[in-house]
Design a protein around this nucleic acid. Structure first.
Lengths: 209, 209
DNA sequence: GCAATTTTTTACCATTTGGTAAATCCACGA
DNA sequence: TCGTGGATTTACCAAATGGTAAAAAATTGC
């Protein structure tokens, strides 16, 4: 068995672990943690169930591995927000990056959403360790811009919440959007335009007459 | 057994069905459909498992009953949006009602979110039958206001998506909000102020100098 | 080519879980 | 008070599911 204790992973090990995580992402994101079965993951990965348990300690191990790995990707666009850039442009660019991610990585978005929805039982520690500091940092950054008069007074925490909510909505609630959205129009393009308009309005310093 | 075919339900039937649905809402919203077990629901309801199956045909029956029942409550605030009121005030009031619902009925919000997240397999028909017409109607209403010059040009569909996303976020992602939000501040009050500010900015006809 | 190691399969198992059958309990009207 | 029909419990079951042991197969290093 490939113990996790820092050896050099074989080519086969690398390939199969990736296969398994790919399959697991697909299955977990569609059915949730409890709804997903090892048999489904095994079938999707093209491996046998015991073979999967040769590479991971168990179902939870796969899920946690997936979540931790995902967290990095997920936080990346936020990290990119640059203190030296133009405040409004930086934030609007962040909105776009987040929206693009919802389009390009919907499974990842749903996996994360499912975990949070159920109280984040398996990922709260990572949330506290990784997300919280970054979140605080970026809130402070936005607050700094406000204090400098580069942005109108607003609530940094809830601004970020709103960005997350509006962008991830298109991945997490895709089933609903699909039912409601006008079939002929390009969802992504219109969502992009709308969010730019909305956050632009919020971020623009109102010039009183 | 109390067949669904239109008899007069006993007092005991009414009471126990309500108990079961209450318990099921609690359990389903916390663990999702697959994650919830009849035993948990039974324990929460203070009834035995077979007794629960005396009142409902099965697990799915309970879940579907809950979802359909919930849909009504859920759509109510949207229905209230009045064509004769002031457009901006009507929309902002809708935002507030939706935010209040996220605070007062988080379990309902999460139950719904969980269903949609997994592709809404058990509720798409109702979405199409109930939600879609109402959604269309209100989009047309907003479009009418825009055409009349009472609102700036904006995308009605995505406006509503954004309202749903931002308000429900506080219920569905509560675990995350809890980890990140400043402990001393009143989440609901600040969220309310922020959303009012954001949608107000979006809905205000920009008066060019 | 061959021993040693890694990978995969076969054959299981224990538990959980949704669900059922039938016996029993109980409320209530005549 | 007693019978009747609704309500509840007891004792189950079959399938699904996470997981394991050990043998077989493949791969690798020499």
């Amino acid at each position: 068995m490939p113990d996790g204790t820092a050896k050099k992973p074989t080519r086969i090990q690398l390939r199969n672990r990736r296969r398994i995580l790919d399959a697991a992402l697909e299955v977990f994101s569609r059915h949730g943690y409890r709804g997903a079965t090892l048999d489904q993951i095994a079938a999707e990965a093209g491996l046998s169930k015991p073979n999967i348990l040769y590479y991971f300690e168990g179902k939870e191990d796969i899920h946690v591995t997936l979540l931790k790995q995902l967290m990095e990707t997920w936080l990346d666009p936020l990290r990119t927000m640059d203190a030296d850039g133009d405040p409004k442009a930086e934030i609007l660019a962040y909105v776009q990056r987040k929206l693009d991610m919802a389009r390009d990585l919907p499974r990842e978005s749903r996996l994360f959403a499912g975990e949070i929805l159920q109280g984040a039982p398996r990922i709260v520690p990572d949330l506290v360790a990784d997300l919280r500091p970054l979140f605080k940092e970026k809130c402070d950054l936005v607050q700094g811009w406000i204090n400098a008069g580069a942005l109108p007074p607003l609530d940094p925490e809830h601004l970020i919440f709103s960005i997350w909510a509006t962008t991830q909505h298109y991945a997490d609630f895709e089933a609903q959007v699909q039912v409601l959205h006008d079939r002929e129009s390009d969802t992504h393009a219109r969502a992009s335009a709308h969010l730019r308009q909305m956050f632009s309005a919020l971020l623009t310093v109102s010039e009183r007459r």
